[in-house]
C-alpha cells in the first residue's frame, strides 16, 4: 500500500472508532452493568441503573456521546516492531483525535498547563497520551483506546510502601481510596491496581489493568486471589451506583504487577467509571482490522 493511502486508512478507521466508543460501551461493560442491575435490591439504586440503561440506548439512537465528559484521549499500544507504519503512528493518532473531536462531537478537554488555555481540539502537548509497548518479531498493531474522564481520573493515587506494610498495606491503600474519592467517581467502578518498585511503574500498571477485559484474571494465582478478595471486600462496602448505596460497588478489580526492589512496594490505584469507554482494535500489516471490544461495529 502506498504510504499516504495507508496513513489515511488508519486515521479514518481510528476517527470512526474513537467517535463510536464515546457513544457505545464495550460488550463486557454492558454485560456487567446488566448483571449488577439485576442483582440490585434497593429501589433507589434500581432507578439509577434504569436511567443508565435508558441513557445508553438514547445515545445510540440519537448518535450522541453518552456522557458529556468524553475525557482526555489515551492510547495503549502494543506495536509489533515489524508493523510497517510504526513511525507514522503518533502523528496519525493526533490527527484522528482532532478529527473525532469534530465528528462526534467530543467535549474540548485539553488545557495546556501553565499557559492555561483550552486548545479546543483535544490535542496539545502529549495529548492524546500514547503508552508504547514494542513487541519484537510481530507485524501487528494492537490499540486500546480510552476516554479518561475528569471524575474517574481524580481518585488516581500512587505511593511507595515499606515492605513491613506488606500486602495488608496495599489493601488499606486501595480501600481508603474507595470510600473517599471512589464514591464520587461514578460507581460501579473498575478498579486497577499496579504493584512494582517506584510510583511511575505502579501507576502505568494500574492503568494498564483497566485495559484488561472484565472477567480476566491476573496469571499469578496469589494476585488473582487478591483481585477476588478486593472485589468482594469493596462490594461489601456497597457504594452502589453513583455512590448512593447499593448491593455492589465495582465491576471488577484488576491487578497488574512487576517485580520489586527488596526494600519497597510501589503501589498505585486508578479507577474507571461505569461509563468505561475502552475500545480494542488490532490491525495487521495489510491494515485489515478486528475489533473485539464491541460486537456489531459497522463503519
Amino acid at each position: 500500500m502506498i504510504e499516504k493511502e495507508a496513513a489515511e486508512k488508519i486515521t479514518d478507521t481510528m476517527v470512526k472508532f474513537i467517535d463510536y466508543t464515546g457513544k457505545c460501551l464495550p460488550d463486557d461493560v454492558r454485560g456487567k452493568l446488566d448483571e449488577l442491575s439485576r442483582q440490585e435490591t434497593i429501589p433507589l439504586a434500581k432507578i439509577i441503573y434504569d436511567t443508565m440503561m435508558k441513557n445508553q440506548k438514547l445515545a445510540i439512537d440519537l448518535d450522541r456521546p453518552s456522557c458529556q465528559d468524553t475525557g482526555a484521549i489515551q492510547f495503549f499500544i502494543k506495536c509489533g516492531a515489524k508493523f510497517p507504519y510504526i513511525g507514522e503512528l503518533p502523528a496519525l493518532l493526533k490527527d484522528a483525535t482532532m478529527r473525532a473531536t469534530k465528528a462526534a462531537p467530543l467535549r474540548h478537554n485539553c488545557v495546556e498547563t501553565f499557559d492555561e488555555y483550552n486548545t479546543g481540539k483535544n490535542v496539545g502537548t502529549d495529548i492524546p497520551s500514547i503508552f508504547w509497548d514494542i513487541i519484537p518479531d510481530t507485524d501487528k498493531l494492537d490499540i486500546n483506546t480510552y476516554m479518561a474522564g475528569g471524575g474517574c481520573s481524580l481518585p488516581g493515587k500512587a505511593m511507595v510502601l515499606m515492605p513491613g506494610e506488606g500486602y495488608e498495606g496495599v489493601t488499606k491503600f486501595v480501600l481508603d481510596q474507595m470510600t473517599t474519592y471512589g464514591l464520587n467517581a461514578c460507581p460501579p467502578l473498575l478498579v486497577g491496581v499496579g504493584i512494582g518498585t517506584s510510583v511511575e511503574v505502579a501507576a502505568v500498571l494500574s492503568k494498564k489493568a483497566l485495559m484488561r477485559p472484565l472477567g480476566s484474571h491476573n496469571k499469578n494465582a496469589r494476585a488473582a486471589e487478591m483481585e477476588k478478595l478486593l472485589e468482594e471486600g469493596i462490594n461489601k462496602i456497597g457504594l452502589g451506583p453513583q455512590g448512593l448505596m447499593g448491593k455492589n460497588s465495582v465491576m471488577g478489580v484488576h491487578i497488574e504487577n512487576a517485580a520489586r526492589h527488596p526494600s519497597v512496594i510501589g503501589v498505585a490505584v486508578n479507577v474507571g467509571c461505569w461509563s468505561h469507554r475502552r475500545g480494542h482494535i488490532v490491525f495487521d500489516r495489510e491494515l485489515n482490522y478486528v475489533i473485539d471490544s464491541h460486537s456489531g461495529v459497522n463503519f
Binding site: Y167, L183, R222, E232, G233, L244
Partner: peptide, 28 residues
Amino acid sequence: NLFEENKIIYDKRKDEAYKEICKHVSFI
C-alpha cells in the same frame, strides 16, 4: 445529608472488609 450519613456506614464496612482481606494476604 445523605452522603454524610452513608459515609459513616461505608467507613464501618470498609474496616470490616480490611480485617477480612488481611487474613489472606500475608504473602511476605
